[in-house]
């Protein structure tokens, strides 16, 4: 399964074994193989990392001597810098590999690049790739390296979902029962897909809203085939944002890529703005104190109004800060417990 169907509700079950058990997690590929307890413990650890980031001297020696490589086959600012900062605060050596200027330009395959890095003794490989499933391929063939999926095609973006969950839990106190409205291009959004796993596992009530052409219709049409206890069985879809937003605790706007109009998914950007832009007026229908989120980068004035993006309800900057802490928690978790030297009893 090198390129799983991006629309698939879940992953091939055999992939679950790639992650290892909760106490010895080896890879972070998506949130579908996390238990609610493991998600909660990652979020707890994240809180401890937030404290480290708040210090005058933002440096702890935890991952001294570990090598983290970020391998991005797609452009990114925040995710890449966030991983780099996370690794450096924990004292790991972080090496950034850009696909241009590397042997990828000479036609080296993803797998051979991965094998080369494994032979160099890399501990963690952070991968972003335009093809869904690329990190799974690496995870299957690189037994000595931990893989973190930093976004694969239309499939998953688990670290973004975890930082979203942390930001919500921190502000709301609990995710259980929270009404979270995700607005926009859910169909092409790996952020939304990973958030669906995380939010439903943590007991949140998820509502998807946006143009019908940008809704994952398999979620609707395939719903009858879902087992009753499947986490997605409870997800609502409501294309009328004004109705969907009523009583929401969180409104998450997704980035609308301008190519979608050329692709025939939208009649016009103006119509999108009129019906689905998250605005102050619409937010007034949500629960008072509701949070406004966006995974970035934003098209201000398209999926979200400028005044809202920088207004009091917005936690968009907190999302970015928390992103570093979440990635620290994951790097720590993956690097610890990887066999080896002698242990110790109490104190």
């Amino acid at each position: 399964m090198t390129t799983p169907d991006a629309m698939a509700l879940g992953n091939d079950p055999q992939d679950v074994t790639l992650a290892g058990t909760a106490s010895t997690r080896r890879n972070v590929l998506d949130l579908d193989d996390f238990t609610p307890d493991e998600i909660a413990s990652v979020l707890d650890d994240t809180g401890a990392m937030v404290e480290v980031l708040g210090r005058d001297i933002k440096k702890v020696p935890t991952l001294r001597g570990r090598v983290v490589v970020t391998m991005f086959y797609e452009s990114s600012t925040r995710t890449r810098i966030s991983f780099e900062e996370a690794g450096k605060v924990l004292s790991a050596d972080v090496i950034n590999m850009a696909s241009s200027g590397s042997s990828v330009d000479k036609g080296e395959s993803l797998l051979n690049t991965g094998l080369t890095l494994q032979a160099m003794g890399v501990d963690v490989l952070v991968v972003r790739h335009p093809h869904s499933g690329a990190p799974y391929l690496l995870a299957r063939h690189l037994p000595q390296v931990s893989i973190i999926n930093a976004g694969d095609g239309l499939h998953a973006h688990p670290t973004q979902a975890l930082l979203d969950l942390y930001t919500m839990r921190e502000r709301l106190g609990s995710l259980s029962g929270a009404r979270v409205v995700i607005v926009g291009d859910v169909l092409h959004s790996r952020v939304a897909r990973s958030n669906l796993w995380g939010l439903t596992k943590m007991g949140a009530q998820v509502v998807l809203s946006g143009p019908t052409t940008l809704m994952p219709l398999d979620l609707l049409s395939g719903r009858d085939e879902l087992e009753e206890d499947h986490p997605f069985a409870q997800v609502e879809v409501d294309t009328d944002l004004d109705r969907a937003i009523e009583g929401a605790d969180v409104v998450m706007a997704l980035r609308l890529q301008s190519e979608r109009q050329q692709g025939g998914f939208l009649p016009s950007i103006r119509e999108y703005i009129r019906r689905w832009q998250v605005t102050d007026d619409r937010l007034a229908k949500a629960r008072s104190g509701a949070l406004v989120m966006h995974p970035g980068p934003m098209n201000e004035g398209v999926e979200i109004s400028t005044s809202l993006a920088h207004g009091e309800s917005s936690v968009i900057e907190a999302q970015v800060t928390n992103g570093v802490a979440v990635r620290m928690a994951l790097l720590y978790r993956l690097c610890a417990g990887r066999g080896g030297r002698n242990g110790e009893g109490n104190s």
Partner: peptide
């Protein structure tokens, strides 16, 4: 975050300082 036996830790957790 300051231990010298990171590799031997199973199910590592960090608590807030």
């Amino acid at each position: 975050l300051y231990r010298d036996d990171l590799q031997a830790r199973e199910n590592p957790r960090v608590r807030p300082t």
